[in-house]
């Protein structure tokens, strides 16, 4: 097989993995299944980043989403249920209206995407991006970078403030 066919097969594999596990996240009735399906969604998105030539972002996705946010969500699941409550079911409400909204959004987006003529200024070559991203953060994007660091500090302190036990 020639390389483009192999690339297509791998791309479709990861695209189907991403969308199918996202569907499990949304439709599964067990919270633990949802959380672990979210793991596969994040992995699939990281693989799509690799396909798009974003190596730094793929590593960041794995470290922050899988290593941080997913663990945080699992903590949230575990801490908000009694220990004997092993099956961790969740219910849905307004399933049918929600499904209608989802179908409408999906149809609109796919229609718009397939009808639009996207302007292209050429494909970016598949080079390593880490050095360029670091230089951009230290030059053009230095102010947003610093604001983001202060923002993370504020979020950290705010989360600790919200969740602390009040002295009564």
């Amino acid at each position: 097989m020639d390389p483009t066919t192999v690339a297509q097969v791998i791309f479709y594999f990861f695209a189907v993995l991403t969308v199918a596990s996202a569907a499990i996240v949304v439709f599964s009735s067990s919270l633990i299944y949802s959380a672990f399906a979210l793991l596969f969604t994040f992995f699939g998105v990281a693989a799509l980043y690799v396909f798009l030539g974003a190596d730094f972002l793929a590593a960041t996705q794995l470290v922050i989403y899988v290593g941080g946010i997913l663990i945080l969500l699992l903590f949230g699941v575990m801490l908000t249920h009694k220990l004997y409550d092993l099956d961790l079911k969740t219910e849905t409400f307004q399933f049918f209206p929600g499904f209608l909204v989802m179908a409408a959004v999906l149809l609109t987006l796919t229609g718009v995407i397939s009808k639009t003529q996207w302007v292209s200024r050429g494909e970016r070559p598949l080079n390593p991006t880490t050095i360029a991203i670091g230089l951009l953060f230290m030059r053009e994007y230095i102010l947003p970078f610093e604001v983001a660091s202060v923002f993370l500090l504020v979020a950290l302190i705010g989360a600790a403030m919200i969740v602390r036990r009040r002295r009564s």
Binding site: V25, V26, L38, T80, M102, L109
Partner: peptide, 28 residues
């Protein structure tokens, strides 16, 4: 792919009862 993920996330936010599950939709 991104449109499918987005609409699934909207579905999760709209229909889930559990707050952590709604957060998963927002992550999607």
């Amino acid at each position: 792919v991104s449109a499918a993920l987005f609409s699934l996330g909207v579905m999760g936010v709209l229909t889930r009862k559990n707050a952590v599950n709604v957060l998963m939709g927002i992550e999607l």
